[in-house]
Design a protein around this nucleic acid. Structure first.
Lengths: 124, 124
DNA sequence: TCTCATGTAATTCTATATGTTACGAATAGG
DNA sequence: CCTATTCGTAACATATAGAATTACATGAGA
């Protein structure tokens, strides 16, 4: 699949697709070929790639939109809030990571196939 | 405490402080007085106000930085990912909310007092 | 050799949060 | 009563991050 086509599907610009896919390529999850009939190809076993692995490969972006703004704040109030919640965020992160690890690309592919079949059935 | 002074503590502009504190005022958690010797005053029992209540009062900002970008996407892949993770995010949110509900302003005040005393001891 | 693709750097665009300015209204002190 | 102070709020400016765009080089195949 070309970056152009992927960009259409994702609603994103081809160059943005290349930037992101580049991270997956460096991790060996996909390969890219240039020129005629080139594009992106899956290079890993779907059964063994989990969402957790993708999260790591994509640079472990922050999971939470709230919480620790400074890791070691001067402000004693901020320190108190951080202390009260740091265990909580660690717990929530562990939960999310465990669940991410439990979902493989193969799982998603199976669910996709099911939804695709259902959509075709409904259209007939 | 004036918005000016609060802004100093928070490293924020007084008008921004007023904007945010205004939400707390509407919820009855603080009161504001204008003119000489005016400013903000706590108007609630610290023992009964939890971080969860603050989160609600401040407009329930998004907790997660990742996840559902569209609630009802056309894309079947996105649908499959959402379906695989929606329970997970709900669980994590419930966990965070439960913990937030468990921390009162009084708890934070006590921890603040402890840290303040400790800092003074260390400085002597 | 020409076209199609990726690879990547540099620049521009855009959306959001914050900062800033401005002015009105209320309050206390002189 | 007048003035300084402080909140209330709208309007505008700025900063920031992410995405989009442009530009150009590289490689592959017809």
């Amino acid at each position: 699949m070309t970056s152009e086509a992927l960009g259409q599907c994702l609603g994103a610009h081809p160059v943005v697709v290349r930037r992101t896919m580049g991270l997956l390529r460096e991790a060996g999850l996909v390969s890219a070929e240039r020129g005629h009939n080139g594009g992106w190809r899956i290079a890993a076993d779907l059964e063994t790639v989990s969402l957790r692995q993708l999260h790591i490969v994509l640079g472990e972006p922050a999971l939470f939109a709230v919480g620790h703004r400074n890791e070691a704040p001067e402000c004693l109030v901020e320190q108190a809030v951080n202390a009260a919640l740091e265990g909580t965020f660690a717990e929530a992160e562990a939960l999310l990571m465990a669940r991410f690890a439990d979902v493989t690309l193969a799982d998603l592919a199976r669910d996709f196939a099911r939804r695709h079949a259902e959509r075709r059935t409904r259209q007939e």
